[in-house]
Amino acid sequence: MNPETAPQEITTLVGREVYTKNGVFVGEVEDLRLDLDVQQVTGLALHQINGELFDPEVSASRGIIVPYRWVQAVGDIVIVNDVVERVHEEGNGEEEVAA
């Protein structure tokens, strides 16, 4: 089995830093949200989040959950699309980015 295509344990995501595709730090993966019915990761629970991207209430909370559909790439770090930055710029707190 090719090591590049071999399935990895989802726990390997825990502790990885998360950045937007523009290079802005978002936070660090603390846990995963799973849908056990379909055996799929549905979100990344982040802590140590970038306080500049989120409202003070969110920054003061324990963390956020980023929908897994926003993930663009996983390697030594996790890359998410820039929707997190756009939410901040527009002042539009999308419901799924929550503590």
Rank of each mutant, 00 (worst) to 15 (best):
V38N: 08
D31I: 08
I64S: 04
V71W: 11
I77R: 15
E90G: 06
S61F: 08
N2R: 08
E30A: 00
Q8I: 13
Q72F: 06
V66D: 03
A45H: 06
D55S: 08
I79W: 10
L46F: 02
V87E: 05
I10E: 05
Q8K: 13
E95D: 04
E4R: 03
R16D: 07
V24Y: 01
Q8V: 13
E17V: 15
Q8F: 11
I49H: 06
V87A: 11
V80H: 09
R86Q: 15
E89W: 13
V18C: 12
E94F: 05
E95R: 02
N22T: 13
T11K: 14
V71A: 09
N50W: 09
G43R: 01
A98P: 02
T12Y: 10
L53M: 04
H47E: 13
G27P: 00
I64R: 02
V24S: 07
V83H: 08
G75I: 12
L36V: 11
R86A: 13
V80T: 11
L13I: 08
Q39R: 06
Y68F: 15
V29K: 01
E30D: 00
R69N: 09
G23R: 07
K21E: 13
V58C: 04
D31T: 10
V14W: 11
V78Q: 12
V87Y: 02
G75V: 12
V26G: 05
V14A: 09
E94R: 02
F25E: 05
V97D: 04
Q72Y: 09
V41G: 04
Q72M: 11
I49Q: 05
V38F: 08
